[in-house]
Amino acid sequence: MDELNLKDLERIPIPEGLEKRLSEKIDEWEQAEKKPHFFSFNKPLRHVSVAASIALVLGLGYILLQQKVSINLAEQDTYRDPAIAKREAERALNLLASNLNRGMEQMKKAKDISDKTEHTLNKQLKSWK
């Protein structure tokens, strides 16, 4: 019975190019098996991806924390009335401006004296020539 089946099988014609197609398919399967999975990446790339995830989480946490901090700062305002707050802010800025003005006036006086001295010196030097 087995001998008969074998003989019948040998009589069946083999389609053309079957061997070639089969070997190509086998090659395909081999390559698919060799394709790297995520966890078979080289170590440095895995470390980079982990580090990037940690950095992203830390960054998001920091941004959320800053929002919380800015809300807390608004709650610490000394004045509840914006008009009073504005008045005090202007007073502080005017104080800064007046002090800066004083300094600049002194600087201008010093510059005038320096220019006058330079002018006198140049005049004297010219007269000696």
Binding site: L73, A74, Q76, D77, T78, Y79, P82, A83, A85, K86, E88, A89, E90, L93, N94, A97, S98, N101
Partner: peptide
């Protein structure tokens, strides 16, 4: 005394000049 940006913006930014020639 603490004055935040929030309070300054509520007050409006247009300053009333009290010193001549000073624009805050």
């Amino acid at each position: 005394v603490y004055i935040s940006q929030f309070m300054l913006k509520l007050a409006g930014l247009k300053a009333t000049p009290s010193l001549p020639g000073v624009n805050t």
